[in-house]
Design a binder for these strands. Structure first.
Length: 351
DNA sequence: AATCGCTAAAGGGG
DNA sequence: CCCCTTTAGCGATT
């Protein structure tokens, strides 16, 4: 596009969005500090678990969450680390020989609560064994949250970061459970081949508290697949995910009144329904990219507003599961109004 | 099970 | 726009 044509309103908006992204970037030094601290602690915790808990011998570290998806903004202060135990057919065939056999209920399901409390105790022990830093480290118990959360004050800059250890079971089977069959529609923008590839990945079961603590329950997790989609998305040069996601995240942190855990899903749903207008801003900062960036971002937010008005946002992998089921209509409307206000006022929030 | 080496991706400086 | 540094992630090796 020729510069003689001048700036349209979309170009201006695109530039504003780019500037906002730059502001939200994590500083390299902060990232370095935080990751060395987190990696140090997680490595020690995982060796302790391997050596001291018999059913944790094969435990694996799985980095999940926004930081490891490269969509964390502002500060590198939250890290999610899943500790996963591979579960294989051996458990079904020879339940008595498997290390997990004592957690089995009579109906062959696995007791979450018992495992979770052993897990929590073991992490506690590991943290107590940590050297000098231990004074700066404490375990937080958040109500109704199955993760073991560490809060660590860093020596370098005095900032506090939190590390969530989540207990998960890694299940490798021929296919994913039936209730996922209408979800995960990535064909429209990533293709069938990619979809088939990803369907071969295992899935994870993450412990959760149900009711007053003692009902055993597992929630299915596809965070590793989400991560892969976001990564591929960038490769395919059709992405708008960084700007869309970050800006949504930004709106949440500034104005959000909802507790939505899987906010990446908003992005995934929008990609599914509107794959075409997405244009990668990376490596192409020409004017044409700015206007398309703005269009793409507006589309994403309009999609989100529609979902909020209906109080209905299906889980990307499990369409029958509504992520907004616990949000009140008034809070959904509140957020929808806020977003519409920003849409109609050239994103005052970013200026 | 731990270590090494390689590559990709991102931040940042020039 | 290119080049350098750092981290993450994977696989091979021991």
């Amino acid at each position: 596009m020729s510069p003689l044509l001048g700036l349209s309103i979309d170009d201006t908006l695109g530039k504003l969005l780019m500037a906002t992204i730059d502001k939200l970037k994590i500083k390299k030094s902060e990232r370095s500090n935080a990751s060395s601290c987190v990696n140090n602690i997680t490595a020690k915790v995982v060796t302790h678990l391997k050596q001291n808990v018999n059913w944790c011998k094969d435990i694996e570290r799985l980095r999940t969450g926004s930081y490891y998806e490269n969509v964390k903004i502002c500060e590198p202060d939250e890290f999610d680390v899943m500790r996963s135990i591979p579960v294989d057919v051996a458990l079904k065939r020879h339940p008595n020989k498997h290390a997990l056999h004592r957690f089995l209920n009579e109906d062959k399901t696995i007791q979450a609560s018992e495992m979770l409390s052993e897990f929590r105790d073991a992490v506690k022990e590991a943290v107590q064994k940590l050297p000098c830093r231990s004074k700066q480290t404490c375990i937080k118990k958040k109500p109704r949250c199955p993760a073991v959360t560490l809060e660590v004050k860093m020596e370098e800059n005095g900032k506090t970061i939190s590390i969530d250890f989540v207990l998960g079971l890694k299940v490798h089977r021929a296919s994913w459970p039936d209730f996922t069959k209408d979800g995960f529609k990535i064909e429209t923008w990533l293709g069938k081949k990619e979809k088939a590839n990803m369907k071969h990945r295992p899935f994870y079961l993450v412990s959760k508290y149900e009711g007053k603590g003692h009902t055993d329950a597992w929630r299915i997790s596809f965070s590793h697949v989400e991560k892969e989609i976001l990564k591929r998305h960038g490769h395919s040069k059709t992405c708008c995910e960084d700007v869309g996601y970050k800006c949504c995240q930004y709106l949440f942190s500034q104005r959000g009144r909802l507790q939505i855990q899987e906010d990446v899903q908003i992005l995934l749903l929008s990609c599914k329904d509107h794959p075409s207008p997405c244009v990668c801003y990376k490596g192409n900062r020409q004017q044409v990219a700015y206007s398309q960036l703005a269009i793409c971002f507006q589309q994403l937010l309009e999609d989100f507003v529609q979902h909020l008005r209906k109080c209905h946002l299906p889980n990307f992998f499990i369409p029958s599961h509504n992520l907004l089921r616990q949000a009140s209509p008034s809070s959904c409307d509140f957020l929808a109004n806020e977003i519409e206000f920003q849409l109609n006022n050239n994103f005052l929030i970013f200026s």
